[in-house]
C-alpha cells in the first residue's frame, strides 16, 4: 500500500497534537515528522512535555486533538499492544523490567511478542520455536555484554545494567521506530559512553529513533535532527549545528551558555 507519507520517507507523523491536564497545556499544537533511518532528538527543560509526547505516541495517553500516524496508519486511540505490533517500541526511562524473572527470560518475553502477543492457541508450535527465540535472546545479550549473568534475577542488576537490558528488550523486537526516554540518565560516564556506542551501532542498522535526552554530549553525538520543546511548544527544529547557533534555544534551554 503506497501512500504519501511513505513516499516522503516519513515514518512517524505527529500532527497538531494538544494535551491539557486540567488547565495546564502540557502540549500545544505539536507537529513533528520523523524521517526513516534518522535519529531525531527532542530536548527541552524539565516539564517541557517531552515524556508526555512519548506517552501520546505509545497510547498511554490520548491527546485532546491531533493524530499520531506510523507509516500512514493512525495510531491514536489504539491499545498499547496494538501500537507495539505496528512497530513503535518505547524504551522506558525508569527500567520497566520483570524483576522476578531471569535476565534471559526478560529478553525472551519481548521476542515472543511479535509472534503471539495478540494471543492464539499455539501450544504445540510455540514449543518448537522456543529454542530459536532463546538463541536470539542470547545473541542480543551478547551484544549488550549481559550474557554472563543471564540466569540471574533481573531485579538484582545494577541500574546501568537494567537500562541496557531495557534497551535490548526494545531492540529485540526489531522496531520500525524506537522511542528512547533518556537512555543515559543517571548513568556513570563510562556507562554513558558505552550506551552511545551501542546506539551508534543501532544507527548503522538503520533503525529510526526518537531520543529524549538531557545530556547534550549524547544528543550532539547521535542526533541527525533536533527539536526543542519548551512549555509544551516546539520552539525550534533543525540540524544540530542550526540548533547550536539558534539564540532562542540558548535562551530557553541552554541558559545562554555556549555549547
Amino acid at each position: 500500500m503506497e501512500n504519501n507519507s511513505t513516499e516522503n520517507n516519513t515514518v512517524l507523523n505527529i500532527s497538531n497534537v494538544n494535551v491539557t491536564f486540567g488547565g495546564l497545556h502540557a502540549l500545544s499544537e505539536i507537529n513533528l515528522q520523523i524521517e526513516e533511518g534518522k535519529t531525531h532528538a527532542i530536548i527541552g527543560p524539565n516539564g517541557a512535555g517531552k515524556s508526555t509526547l512519548l506517552n501520546v505516541c505509545i497510547g498511554k495517553l490520548v491527546p485532546d486533538t491531533g493524530t499520531v500516524t506510523l507509516d500512514g496508519e493512525i495510531m491514536t486511540g489504539k491499545l498499547p499492544h496494538e501500537i507495539n505490533h505496528a512497530g513503535m517500541v518505547r524504551v522506558f526511562q525508569t527500567p520497566e523490567i520483570f524483576p522476578e524473572m531471569s535476565i534471559l527470560r526478560n529478553m525472551m518475553i519481548p521476542a515472543f511478542a511479535k509472534r503471539d502477543g495478540m494471543f492464539k492457541f499455539n501450544a504445540f508450535t510455540s514449543m518448537a520455536d522456543e529454542k530459536e527465540i532463546e538463541a536470539e535472546a542470547i545473541h542480543v545479550l551478547q551484544d549488550f555484554g549481559l550474557v554472563d549473568q543471564m540466569h540471574h534475577h533481573a531485579g538484582s542488576m545494577s541500574r546501568g545494567d537494567k537500562r541496557r537490558l531495557e534497551l535490548g528488550m526494545g531492540l529485540i523486537q526489531h522496531p520500525r521506530i524506537l522511542l528512547l526516554d533518556e537512555p543515559t540518565a543517571g548513568m556513570a560516564r563510562h556507562d554513558t559512553n558505552r550506551t552511545i556506542e551501542l546506539l551508534q551501532s543501532i544507527k548503522e542498522r538503520g533503525t529510526t529513533k526518537v531520543i529524549i535526552e538531557h545530556d547534550m554530549h549524547v544528543v550532539f553525538s547521535l542526533a541527525d535532527r533536533i527539536s526543542v520543546l519548551a512549555q509544551g511548544r516546539i520552539i525550534a527544529a533543525g540540524t544540530p549545528d542550526e540548533i547550536r547557533a539558534n539564540p532562542k534555544v540558548q535562551e530557553a534551554y541552554l541558559g545562554g551558555a555556549e555549547i
Binding site: H81, N84, F98, E100, R105, P110, M118
Partner: peptide, 17 residues
C-alpha cells in the same frame, strides 16, 4: 509469570494480556 511481574510493561511490550 511476566504478567504477574509487570502487567503494564507486558502491554507495552505488545501483549494483549
Amino acid at each position: 509469570q511476566a504478567i504477574k511481574s509487570n502487567q503494564t510493561r507486558m502491554r507495552y511490550t505488545g501483549f494483549n494480556t
